[in-house]
Design a protein around this nucleic acid. Sequence first.
DNA 1: CCCTTAATTTGTTGGTCAACATACCGTCGA
DNA 2: TCGACGGTATGTTGACCAACAAATTAAGGG
Lengths: 237, 237
Amino acid sequence: MTTETAGIEDRGSAVDQVVDAIRRLIRERNLGIGDALPSEIELAAMFDTSRNTVREAIRMLKAYGIIESRQKVGAVITDRRQQALMELFSFAIDISAENFLDIQGFRRLVEVNLSDLLFQAIDAAALARLEAINEAMRLAPDLPEAARLDFEFHAALVGSAGNQTLSQVYGILRPLLQRLMEAGKASRIAIDSAYDDHGDIIAALRQRDRIAYAYHMNRHLHAGLQFIQTPKEPGQI
Amino acid sequence: MTTETAGIEDRGSAVDQVVDAIRRLIRERNLGIGDALPSEIELAAMFDTSRNTVREAIRMLKAYGIIESRQKVGAVITDRRQQALMELFSFAIDISAENFLDIQGFRRLVEVNLSDLLFQAIDAAALARLEAINEAMRLAPDLPEAARLDFEFHAALVGSAGNQTLSQVYGILRPLLQRLMEAGKASRIAIDSAYDDHGDIIAALRQRDRIAYAYHMNRHLHAGLQFIQTPKEPGQI
DNA sequence: CCCTTAATTTGTTGGTCAACATACCGTCGA
DNA sequence: TCGACGGTATGTTGACCAACAAATTAAGGG
């Protein structure tokens, strides 16, 4: 037999219905960013359902980046969908479990060719910050700390380009890249070499020298690549 | 006193922690699409939390499109992230112009500088495929179909570079980029212009002409940018 | 003006009941 | 005897309720 629930639009679970209902509520009341939703208890009474169901619906909206909720204050409408989008990215990387070389290739593609955006957006303060990070890396007490500061340098560099999407991608790749760099920083010599490379890169940035930037960055990333020919566990994150 | 980062990341609520824990579980057990998660009760016991908290975590993962749960069967890992992304953007909030431009900037950074990887990996079959897609775009019956094929062209191009991380990112961005391209393909003239650009790009690829590739790709993407200067309706939900 | 206290709201937990899909097992028929 | 059929047992998700903890705001008292 076919479904005998013909009368009511039964599509979706109770949670999905509440999600739609909340969306309708937002639309009908013309709520915008910053406005607060009714409390969970009120919503439950409004839609004649339980508070837990409302909570699960709110969880979905939170995952979509549409609302944020703070205790006591309640749920507030926001637009953090860009971050939600990045969460999706991070899941992609989880699932497909790329190997290190693949991600390193992606990284090279980005960083070596970043000069256009960088020259356009970078200022003296950003350059000083890069130098400070580089100096701290040289003086780092141990290798993991140096690796962390190495990543910090590159993240700051990418951040200076002013592209949000890019910055967030790097935020997601952070743990992976850091492991990559720990693998590449097996000795003090590698750190000193990276320090010099970073210095060359900063100099190229300061002089707005596109060619020099690409040359040094490419060399630098290629050098780091040598040390990690064998990933720790292939195909595993 | 305040916790001095006592080992475990205390960041986020219990639900967020369970989300991360499930992600780690998937990674560590190397679970793939179609595999089943432990039952909610087992997960609750595993992470020493309650079933409702696990349910909310599963709700989030469901919102991200990486798991699906059917009654009785349990939660199964899937990949419906594209649908999740569409849900994300089906909320009536218009994408802000800044977000559009930001993502477009990211795209330019990637595609314009893809030549190194492309020249290394592309073959005759891939070039023929690109030409076929381009031809199909020229002959497309309507504008949305042309926009779809335009995206298809770029996705195939990026895919030819052979970097999995990059391909994944483009796969997820598909609906978003397609909207971007629909906005840019407001007229037949724009399509013909894109067709010519694509042809130039293919020719540059065939001749392994790095400069020509970068020139034509940059021109092409810059041209597409003109059409979306004005957002539809800023900041309404 | 500052501190204390109360109230409100979300966060988390444990439990109950229902719906339902699957597996297993016994019965019946050929 | 063997296979098909049907019923039941079991385990899982879906939905809900009640209660307490934590946090944050707001009010009130010194």
